[in-house]
C-alpha cells in the first residue's frame, strides 16, 4: 500500500507524486487533504490533494522542498512505499452553482486549487483561475488548471511569464470591471491569502481560504492546528481547512506556522550533513 506510482519533477524544488491509496481515492472530495509519513521515525505532514483517480485508486500530491521531510520525500522513487498515508481529512469544498467565480493559486497553492476549480466548473460555474508565482519556472500544473477553468490568467512577480505582478492585482482589475463575481477561493502562502481577502473586502465578495496549519493527527485530536475564526477557536483539520478569509485572525495564524521553525532548521541541517563524522570522544585519544 501507499506505493509511489508516478513521480514527476515540476521544478528544482517542486515534485508531483501519484500515490496508491484506493480507500482514500474512493472517498476524497475537492478541498480535502491527506497526512503522510515517509518512515516510522518520520513526522506526519498534511498535504492538500492535488488530484485523484478513483478508478485506479490513486491520489496525487504536489509538494515543495521546504525542510527535512519534504526533501526526504523528494528522494523517493517510483515503486517506493510510504509508511503511512491517511485521509481524506477536513471538510470538502462547498461545490454549488454560484455563477461566475474566481479560483486563485499561488506557489504550490496552484496544485491545491486544481480539484476545486475543476469541480466548480463541472457543475456549471464560469471559473476564472488566476495562478501566480515568483518566476516562470515556479508556475506548475498550468495545463491542468487551464483545463479545469473557463479562463486562466498567469502572473509572475518578475514578469518572466504571463502578466508581471501579483495575483491580487489581476483580481482587483477583474472585480473593478465585473460585478457579477459571486465567490473567490484563494490558496497559497499566508500573506497572499491575506492580501486576497483585503482585496475582495471592499467588493463584499465572499472569499474562501484554505489554511495549512501545523498538525499532528489531523483528526481533531490534538488541537495543534487551532486558529481564531471570528473570535472563536477552530481546528483547521476538522472545522476547515477552508474558512471565510475575512474572519481569519491572520497574525496569529502566521505566528503559529513558525512554532517549530528552530527545530525544523536543526533537523534539516542534520539531514544535510550525512557525511559528518562524529568526533565525540576522539579528543582524548
Amino acid at each position: 500500500m501507499y506505493k509511489i506510482i508516478k513521480k514527476e519533477r515540476l521544478h528544482d524544488t517542486i515534485y508531483s507524486m501519484w500515490i496508491e491509496a484506493p480507500d482514500v481515492a474512493s472517498s476524497v472530495q475537492p478541498g480535502q487533504f491527506i497526512i503522510l509519513m515517509i518512515q516510522e521515525k518520520g513526522e506526519r505532514i498534511p498535504l492538500t490533494v492535488a488530484d485523484f483517480d478513483r478508478e485506479k485508486g490513486l491520489i496525487r500530491i504536489v509538494f515543495q522542498i521546504v525542510g527535512k521531510t519534504s526533501e526526504e520525500l523528494s528522494t523517493l522513487k517510483e515503486g517506493d512505499k510510504l509508511y503511512s498515508f491517511i485521509g481524506p481529512l477536513g471538510k470538502k469544498t462547498e461545490i454549488a452553482l454560484y455563477g461566475k467565480v474566481i479560483t486563485i493559486g499561488g506557489g504550490t497553492g496552484i496544485a491545491c486549487i486544481h480539484t476545486i476549480a475543476r469541480a466548480l466548473k463541472e457543475v456549471g460555474n464560469e471559473v476564472i483561475s488566476i495562478i501566480g508565482a515568483r518566476t516562470k519556472d515556479l508556475i506548475i500544473m498550468e495545463e491542468e488548471i487551464k483545463k479545469a477553468s473557463s479562463k486562466l490568467i498567469v502572473t509572475t512577480d518578475d514578469g518572466s511569464y504571463g502578466r508581471k505582478g501579483f495575483v491580487t492585482q489581476v483580481l482587483k482589475e477583474i472585480l473593478d470591471k465585473d460585478q457579477s463575481i459571486k465567490k473567490v477561493w484563494t490558496i497559497g502562502p499566508a500573506i497572499m491569502m491575506k492580501v486576497t481577502c483585503e482585496t475582495t473586502k471592499p467588493y463584499s465578495v465572499e472569499t474562501i481560504v484554505s489554511l495549512n496549519s501545523v498538525m499532528v493527527d489531523g483528526t481533531g485530536m490534538c488541537g495543534s492546528c487551532r486558529v481564531t475564526i471570528n473570535g472563536e477557536t477552530k481546528f483547521v483539520c476538522t472545522d476547515g481547512p477552508e474558512f471565510d478569509g475575512q474572519l481569519v485572525e491572520w497574525s496569529e495564524f502566521a505566528n503559529r506556522l513558525t512554532r517549530y521553525q528552530e527545530q525544523e532548521q536543526k533537523s534539516w541541517g542534520i539531514y544535510h550533513k550525512p557525511t559528518h563524522t562524529c568526533r565525540y570522544g576522539k579528543e582524548t585519544e
Binding site: K41, G42, E43, R44, K68, T69, V216, D217, M221, C222, G223, S224, R226, V227, T228, T233, E252, N255, R256, T258, R259, Q263, K266, S267, I270
Partner: peptide, 28 residues
C-alpha cells in the same frame, strides 16, 4: 492560542506516539 500553549493531547502525542523526546532521531 499563543505558540507555546499545548493541549495535553498534542504534547503527549508528540512525545509518546511520535517520539519527539528522541528528536532529531525522530522527525517530530
Amino acid at each position: 492560542n499563543l505558540n507555546d500553549v499545548y493541549s495535553a493531547n498534542e504534547f503527549l502525542t508528540r512525545s509518546n506516539l511520535m517520539k519527539a523526546y528522541a528528536f532529531p532521531e525522530y522527525d517530530t
